[in-house]
Design a protein around this nucleic acid. Structure first.
Length: 425
RNA sequence: GGAGAGAUGGCAGAGUGGUCGAAUGCACCGGUCUUGAAAACCGGCAAGGAUGCAAGUCCUUCCAGGGUUCGAAUCCCUGUCUCUCCGCCA
């Protein structure tokens, strides 16, 4: 959501950002519609004032009852008409604005697609295999870790069943990640609903534009969340936060549900792209002037995990053509997947500035000055478990198809140190 | 699934047709007192919008949407959600 007053003052800021995203400029229609709205609104308010005065005069004995009734009746007809006109304009305006993406940070590089993203940093040594590394599907099949026959039978494609030590590894990873986020980086650990109202999704920007990516239930029109960013960021929707309580930092593990409507043919097999996947998320609600710093903190929190797992990764700055709707600046974290011989996204850390907080009417109040303003919201994955599992399986594989467990995870997996076909005692 | 109750400011909770944007308490902010703090006392304290250089003035909002009325937090209808009890259930 954008600030109309800001757009009216600096129309080119919005238009330039839209152009950078390869979209058509729209400030002129916004300004026009808003002015039309104000015309109707101002007139309506004047008439309402008259009407209120007449009602108050009623207590006065001198007033002629019938005259007042007639005058109010006349005013009412005019007011209703103006009300309708104003409402229509406001609706028109909202429909336009709700579909506009966030204004991009100046730092965002120009570009059309992910090919134009900028690699800022690479960390970790890519392992040199003295055999041809298998991909996670081959590894999992050999070790009986995934069952797609059953998954397809019960749910269809793009669903997985994890078994045996892979399920255990998944469970351990979640605990490891949450511990990292909460104990080392101060994010408050939460367990949150995975079904949310449409207003909640509108708050973070998934609705109304990306409806086709979501699963909707027929219970109270609730939607399955595509990421726990949605419930976490909406914690303080329509409320006012005391400045003293800032910043607010949350982490949660949830399942995420995505229709993947536009991804047919992409990553069709395995844990890479599924309708349901587990993810640990970070959300920060921050003072506006501190949000850049908080994004750095967030990325460091994610990097800390990968360093401890000894997984090679790189940090990628998304270009204007690839960056998400609600974000003003995004850094992706990509991890090395030997089976695909490339880096793949495992986290996306975004500064959404005041875009989401305006949509959800979340504000900060400075009780000393009385000042009320919008916080910045940030979100990042830490991390997508499925993709992390792919990377662990592929990076830690041995020639015989067995898989070492990263040492940091042993305390989270009952001491499991290797996944292999050898019977354990 | 059956029966009942309810939705008011950051929270708790009064208010059943005009004097209500709304008592009171807590929280919060400022001050007095104190070496400092606490307590006590005094004062302040809803949000959004329009208009104006500003001071200010005006409009809207007591779950949402309709209706009655000159006038609605208050009366009527519809919807949504919440709670309690019973049943079922992880």
């Amino acid at each position: 959501m954008h600030d109309i007053k800001f757009i009216k003052k600096h129309p080119s800021v919005l238009d330039d950002s839209l152009k950078k995203r390869n979209l058509a400029p729209s400030s002129s229609s916004i300004v026009r519609i808003h002015n039309e709205y104000l015309e109707h609104l101002n007139l309506k308010q004047k008439l309402l004032e008259e009407k209120n005065a007449l009602s108050k005069s009623f207590v006065n004995k001198e007033t002629k009852i019938e005259d007042v009734k007639a005058a109010v009746h006349k005013l009412k007809i005019k007011i209703d008409k103006l009300s309708d006109l104003a409402e229509l304009k406001l609706k028109e305006l909202n429909e336009l604005i709700l579909f506009l993406p966030n204004i991009l940070s100046k730092k965002v590089p120009n570009g059309k697609s992910e090919k134009d993203n900028r690699i800022l940093k690479a960390y970790g040594k890519i392992r040199n295999f003295n055999f041809k590394p298998k991909n996670h599907l081959e590894l999992a099949e050999n070790l009986d870790l995934l069952d797609y026959k059953k998954a397809i039978k019960i749910s269809g494609s793009r669903f997985s069943i994890l078994k045996n030590d892979l399920a255990k590894l998944h469970r351990g990873l979640v605990n490891f990640l949450i511990d990292n986020n909460s104990l080392e980086f101060g994010y408050e650990e939460c367990i949150v609903p995975e079904l949310v109202k449409s207003e909640t999704l509108e708050g973070t920007g998934q609705l109304p534009k990306f409806k086709e990516d979501l699963f909707k239930t027929n219970f109270n029109d609730l939607y399955l969340i595509p990421t726990s960013e949605v419930p976490l960021t909406n914690f303080h929707r329509e409320s006012i936060i005391n400045k003293k309580d800032m910043p607010l930092k949350y982490t949660a593990y949830t399942n995420c549900f995505r229709a993947e409507a536009g991804a047919s043919g992409l990553d069709t097999k395995g844990l890479m792209r599924e309708h349901q996947f587990g993810k640990v998320e970070l959300v920060t609600i921050s003072e506006p002037e501190k949000s850049d710093l908080e994004l750095d903190n967030m990325v460091r929190c994610v990097e800390n995990i990968l360093k401890k797992l000894f997984i090679p990764y790189r940090i990628v700055e998304l270009c204007s053509g690839d960056i998400g709707f609600s974000s003003s600046y995004t850094l992706d974290v990509e991890i090395w997947m030997p089976g695909q011989n490339k880096f793949r996204e495992v986290s996306s850390c975004s500064n959404c500035t005041d875009f989401q907080s305006r949509r959800m009417k979340m504000r900060i109040k400075n009780f000393e000055s009385g000042e009320i303003y919008y916080p910045h919201t940030l979100n990042g994955s830490s991390l997508a478990i499925g993709r992390l599992l792919i990377s662990i399986l592929e990076n830690y594989q041995n020639k015989d198809g067995s898989i070492e467990i990263p040492s940091i995870l042993k305390e989270y997996t009952n001491g499991l140190s290797v996944i292999s076909n050898d019977k354990k005692i």
